[in-house]
């Protein structure tokens, strides 16, 4: 643990200003240490009191928006979700997420990740477009069916898993843990019928085959999404599909309202529809 009794804390920050620097450089800042401060709080203090040109992305300050993924003391994590007191070093070392180009200072260019994400069709694919646009009811889904993908749907697309992945460190063709986990989130959804369309991408080089279960993605994920689990389950589905063992199932149908029976008088009417 860093020295909690110290009055000050030292930050070493990787800086890069594209109009001025030819390569990233390190800059040190000493700031007052406040109990309960996060790494993100420290960055704000530096920006407000020492160097207004320091750039990073952040928004919600509570681990929900996924903007402030950074390499903090060698580990990809959210700056807002990391207490200064939990870092086991005297100096807080902050760098932009690796495996993405640096736009400026701590701002990585995440667009390759989102391109890969979009290519894997992270949405429900069904034949009944009209029902999806103008729903007449809910698609049926049991709690057990929900559990098959719920964990993967907690992803906030912060990119920490991509920064930790050894394959993604060299191979830009590999889709990476986030897009693959999100493809599995939809493949595993009982309401989805897009397995064959996603297979067209997943069966090739961009699929899960370059994952060798080093497990870094799951180790760094700030939301417990466990992309490594999603990717292994995806491999099973695709191998089962190849050897014709995968059970193809129709996407869940719209639940029809009960036709018979009378409404209990103590149940109030639903509010009027707003959309």
């Amino acid at each position: 643990m860093s020295d909690a009794t110290a009055k000050e804390i030292l930050y070493r920050i990787r800086r890069f200003e594209p109009t001025r620097d030819r390569a990233p450089r390190w800059q040190a800042f000493t700031i007052p240490r406040v109990p309960g401060m996060t790494v993100l709080d420290g960055l704000w203090t530096i920006k407000q009191t020492q160097d207004a040109s320091l750039a990073w992305r952040s928004s919600c300050r509570m681990g929900i928006c996924g903007s402030c993924g950074m390499l903090i003391n060698g580990r990809a994590r959210l700056a807002c979700n990391t207490q200064v007191s939990e870092i086991d070093a005297a100096v807080i070392v902050v760098a932009p997420l690796p495996n993405f180009d640096i736009i400026r200072d701590l701002v990585p260019d995440l667009s390759p990740m989102f391109d890969a994400h979009a290519a894997l069709m992270p949405y429900l694919i069904r034949d009944d477009a009209r029902e999806q646009e103008r729903p007449t009811g809910e698609f049926s889904q049991s709690p057990q069916e929900l559990e098959r993908y719920l964990q993967f749907s907690y992803c906030i697309k912060c990119g920490c898993c991509m920064a930790a992945c050894p394959t993604y460190a060299t191979d830009p063709v590999y889709s990476g843990p986030m897009p693959l986990a999100q493809a599995q989130r939809y493949n595993a959804d009982g309401r989805d019928g897009g397995f064959l369309r996603r297979r067209a991408v997943l069966g090739g080089e961009r699929g899960p085959w370059r994952c060798h279960f080093a497990g870094e993605c799951s180790r760094v994920c700030p939301k417990g999404v466990d992309p490594a689990k999603a990717i292994q389950l995806m491999k099973r589905d695709l191998v089962w599909d190849y050897i014709r063992l995968r059970k193809e199932q129709c996407p869940a149908a719209v639940m029809s309202k009960p036709k018979a029976g009378t409404r209990r008088p103590d149940i109030p009417e639903p509010p009027p529809r707003t959309v």
Binding site: R199, L202, G203, G204, E205, G207, W209, V239, Y242, I243
Partner: peptide
């Protein structure tokens, strides 16, 4: 050949 096939054979 696609990796889906090649990888399945790799495991086999």
């Amino acid at each position: 050949m696609r990796d889906q096939k090649l990888w399945s054979w790799h495991v086999a």
